[in-house]
Nucleic acid binder design. Sequence first.
DNA 1: ATGACTGCCTCTGGCAGA
Length: 257
Amino acid sequence: MRIATYNINGIKARLPRLLEWLEETRPAVACLQEIKTQDEGFPAAEFEKIGYHAIWHGQKSFNGVAILADGTKPEEKQRGLPGDDTDDHSRYLEADVAGVRIANLYLPNGNPHPGPKFEYKLSWMERLRTRMRTLWESEQPTIVLGDFNVIPHNDDVWSVRAMQDDALMQPESRNAYQRILADGWTDAVRTLNPRGGVWTYWDYQRGAWQRDHGFRIDHCLLSPELADRLTAVGVDKEYRGREKASDHTPVWVEIGD
DNA sequence: ATGACTGCCTCTGGCAGA
């Protein structure tokens, strides 16, 4: 089964592109981030028409995540990241699909650094690690995927110098990500592309796409039960070049039976 | 040195994004 993540940067503006991608690549599960709509604005009927059932966690203007599944409704397991009752951002949604626990996340960007937004990012990452330890202990096949807003290594970015002051690659951000990996999770794209050089995001500005000035921030982390079944990963790079594209590309993993 | 795109919901300009 193919499980994908796609930061779509606005589901209303992106709907034609999104439907096109679903029909052309037909992932079993598609995790979306930055739907940027309240719950009542989610276009569930458009997905039903092409055979996808969805659950979603919206928010006005910003954030928002959704999980789509081909031919089956995702069984919701967790809405919102636990650990802080004052956090009202819609950035986390969990569901079971075909016996696999799917955790879809949109991790805070954290810019500008330093500042309160960066502190929010780091505290969110610690809460995520706590949640992932609970998932780990369940021993259920689990994938935690989405827009992590972390550039893990220097070979995951076109220019270290251009991004050195950005929250996406501060040592604190990277260390928090590495602590999660050190708990035993497998970064699927990294594992099958150990030399780096794979981008999942290209800025709209400065001709970044045309110059291939990108970096890797959309990740798929696998529990041991799924890492053993990993057969392929991919980035649907071509979609970044289409009309009215998101600034991210879809990223996917293929899991064997 | 600065801003540079894009989407959102409108205080159609200001904020957020990365």
